[in-house]
Amino acid sequence: MASRSERVGIYYQLPTFFVSMALIIYPLLYVIYLSFNELNLYVSMDTVFVGINNYRMLLSDEHFVEALTNSFIFVLGSTPMHFLLSLAFALIANEEFKGRSLYRGIMFAPWVMPIVVASVIWRWMLHPDWGIYNNIFRLLGLLGGTQTIGWLTDSNLVWLGVCYVNWIKNYPFMFVNILAALSSVPVELYEAAKIDGANAISRFRYITLPTIKPVCYLMLLLGVINTFINFEVIWLLTEGGPGWATTTYGIYVYILSFQEWKLGYGAAFGIVGLIVSLIFALLYIKYFMELAKK
């Protein structure tokens, strides 16, 4: 009886399983295969086996290390700030005040804005000549009338520009999850602590923080991975430029595969990045399963 119903459970997984096989497992195996081959679509659809040649080429490619380094810069510039913003906004949104549900909606809104739309708006707002940010700085006298700041075109500032846009665009997912964790903290605990004379800081430290800690770890891991593999934000803001300044892992895979059409070489570089992100993924899954058991 029990085994029959267990089988039903497995049957129900079949549709998702088949779709995942076709769209995740098969492509993954194909990319691994492709990374040991050369494929020139202009000549033919057939692959030519080249062994570990692609990987050997990576070692002498100056952009290989640069792209990975840039990805880590992007992660370091984005994820900690995402976390701080999300935590701060979630703490605010967890307070009782009029218009709280509207506030929660607004704070989640950047997730809804298509990344393409966001990039258009930001490329205008951060434009050196007529961008509204520079115009505001000129109005405040921080910038001379004819001076310009290329937030997205000056190679010294481009990371600040890109990360700033990424902060405002991609924090909502973390925010929602931290907010959900905050609202699961039992109110009685706070009241008891208040009676015992604990101030706001120690209430946060000894009640709030321990409760939301597991979620914070999960979110930080997920944030690191999502930023590391992100392609769209940077591609749409700078296309990896100026020069190679913001060419991250995702951008370089795209350039290699779909601009230079070195599909095999692009796949090899893709696999290297995949391995890096899988390390974080394993940590995430470990935490996730521990939480799910509780």
Binding site: L23, L28, I229, F231, V253, I271, G273
Partner: peptide, 8 residues
């Protein structure tokens, strides 16, 4: 969730 989408 952790697979770089661009690779696919």
């Amino acid at each position: 969730q952790f697979l770089p989408w661009v690779l696919f």
